[in-house]
Design a protein around this nucleic acid. Structure first.
Ligand SMILES: [Mn+2]
Ligand SMILES: [Mn+2]
Ligand SMILES: [Zn+2]
Ligand SMILES: [Zn+2]
Lengths: 143, 143
DNA sequence: CAACGAATTAGAACGATTCTAAAGTGTGAG
DNA sequence: CTCACACTTTAGAATCGTTCTAATTCGTTG
């Protein structure tokens, strides 16, 4: 019972600790969003999908704050952006080295572990340029 | 001199032939745009960059027509789209198998020949999905 | 040289994202 | 514990790339 009482607090406490550690004030909105983003495994969200989710959960957060928060989390290294669609930006809670399957039709991203994929033969970039990262997007469709 | 006189016509004639071959009516606008796109080597354009270019060349074409034309050329297999930036769509006159360096800061795309790059270890997609294409984007920055 | 369907266009509309500026909130100095 | 103040949130406007609409213009074919 002590446990049952403590559990709801745990997610918020973890989120708060994570925010403090990242140098971000643990506001009500940021704690809620961090809770949704980080409490269960890796996730891929858009600003709108996360806003819908937090709203559905009964928490009032403006869309502008969702955008602000996603960008702040990204700057803080808690998220990374994934560019797969010209019309919509995705944010990824998995900041490690990995790649993606992308199901265009449904806007669905699926992780591919970084170790499993190898890109060979990338030429030396033109003079004056250096490689920042190599992104692989495996575009898939339903059979 | 016969040659000098014939040259300006050649580009338009080639563009017209290309359009007819693709089943597209060779309108003044499409001939102009095809001329700019296909007369010299491979190119990467955005709707806006191509519109600026055609406008600067003194030809009056609306931005809507540039969009329409880019999409029609893409459907006809004369162009392909490249997704590297969440805010802007690129079109590529190189429709063959190849990948890209992308210089985010300047919106510059540079081709990497398809044969030079190999992506190994792409897992079998989740059940019910099949691979459509594999895109590699090497993001680079100025030193 | 019509006549007709196809193409172009200006401008409105749209969807995603960013900005503005005003009101609200977390926090640390006292 | 309080409160001042910087930081944050917010509604709504603005912006940006792109698409749509509906009216005009043009290319083709008979
Ligand atoms: Mn957009
Ligand atoms: Mn866009
Ligand atoms: Zn991922
Ligand atoms: Zn290319």
């Amino acid at each position: 019972m002590a446990k049952a009482l403590r559990e709801p607090k745990t997610t918020a406490a973890q989120a708060t600790a994570r925010l403090r550690h990242a140098g971000l004030r643990p506001t009500r909105q940021r704690v809620e969003l961090a809770g949704l983003l980080f409490q269960n495994g890796d996730r891929h969200v858009t600003a709108e999908s996360l806003h819908d989710e937090v709203t559905t959960a009964g928490v009032k957060v403006s869309l502008a704050t969702v955008y602000n928060t996603l960008h702040q989390f990204t700057e803080a290294g808690l998220l990374r952006q994934v560019i797969v669609d010209a019309a919509r930006g995705y944010f990824d809670t998995n900041t490690g080295d990995h790649q993606h399957f992308f199901l265009e039709k449904e806007g669905l991203l699926i992780d591919i572990p970084g170790e499993s994929i190898a890109v060979a033969g990338v030429p030396t970039p033109p003079a004056g340029l250096s490689v920042d990262r190599v992104d692989v997007v495996v575009r898939v469709r339903r059979n």
